[in-house]
């Protein structure tokens, strides 16, 4: 918990991460608006896709920083030497990433809703975002720990992250389409459990393999 607090404190002091990720997310929305020509008729078909492309790109940006910062300052060595279990370090980092991403998404979501004209006030949509972002942060935290230690790390994180996270993106887009579309909820009973199963599975696996990543 202290770990989470430390990273939050760092971020509150600098504010660079949240601001840059927010601006990046908005840029994605603007670019996609022109790339796909979003008209009111097609908005429910296209908007969830744009939303999740923006969130997923923003997540890789945010998470690529998580361990680079530790590495630059030599903070990870300090963490590893302290009497904290590796699981706790991993979960602390993943929780921080989760909170950052949720913060960014909660700012971006209303902006997207205004820009593309859909209703963001839906518990299903919020639930989808929380479940999917948890999946992002578990897998992303693990891979950013790997990527931070390798050469050409800016490219390694997305290359590792996107193929593995694909089911989450599919599930999130499908669930959000139903949440935004409002009319049909068919299939929601399938996509939300899919996201939950993904989260549960990686909640078990990621802390276990993380201990092998950070050992030196």
């Amino acid at each position: 918990m202290v770990l989470v607090w430390k990273d939050i404190l760092l971020e509150v002091r600098s504010r660079e991460l949240v601001i840059s990720v927010l601006v990046f997310g908005l840029l994605v929305a603007v670019v996609f608006n022109f790339a796909l020509d979003v008209t009111p008729q097609r908005v429910t078909a296209i908007a969830p896709g744009i939303l999740w492309v923006a969130f997923a790109f923003a997540a890789t940006m945010a998470m690529s920083r998580a361990f680079v910062r530790e590495r630059e300052q030599g903070g990870l060595e300090g963490l590893l030497l302290s009497p904290v279990s590796r699981d706790a370090i991993f979960l602390g980092k993943a929780l921080t990433n989760l909170l950052f991403m949720l913060l960014v998404e909660m700012v971006l979501l209303p902006v997207f809703a205004v820009l593309f004209g859909f209703s963001a006030m839906s518990f299903t949509l919020i639930g989808t975002i929380v479940l999917a972002t948890l999946g992002f942060s578990l897998v992303g935290t693990l891979f950013s720990a790997i990527a931070a230690q390798t050469r050409s790390r800016e490219i390694m994180l997305p290359v590792l992250f996107f193929p593995v996270i694909l089911p989450v993106i599919i599930g999130a887009v499908e669930a959000s389409t139903r949440a935004i579309g409002g009319e049909t909820t068919v299939g929601l009973g399938r996509w939300l459990p899919l996201l939950a199963v993904f989260d549960a599975l990686f909640l078990v696996i990621c802390p276990w393999v993380f201990s092998f990543v950070v050992e030196e």
Partner: peptide, 23 residues
């Protein structure tokens, strides 16, 4: 070590990918 981690996570992920694409 890193590639072993990717080998494990990647393989576990494959069935989920498969079912999500089927649905």
């Amino acid at each position: 070590r890193y590639s072993a981690v990717v080998g494990i996570v990647g393989f576990v992920d494959v069935p989920i990918v498969y079912y999500s694409v089927i649905w």
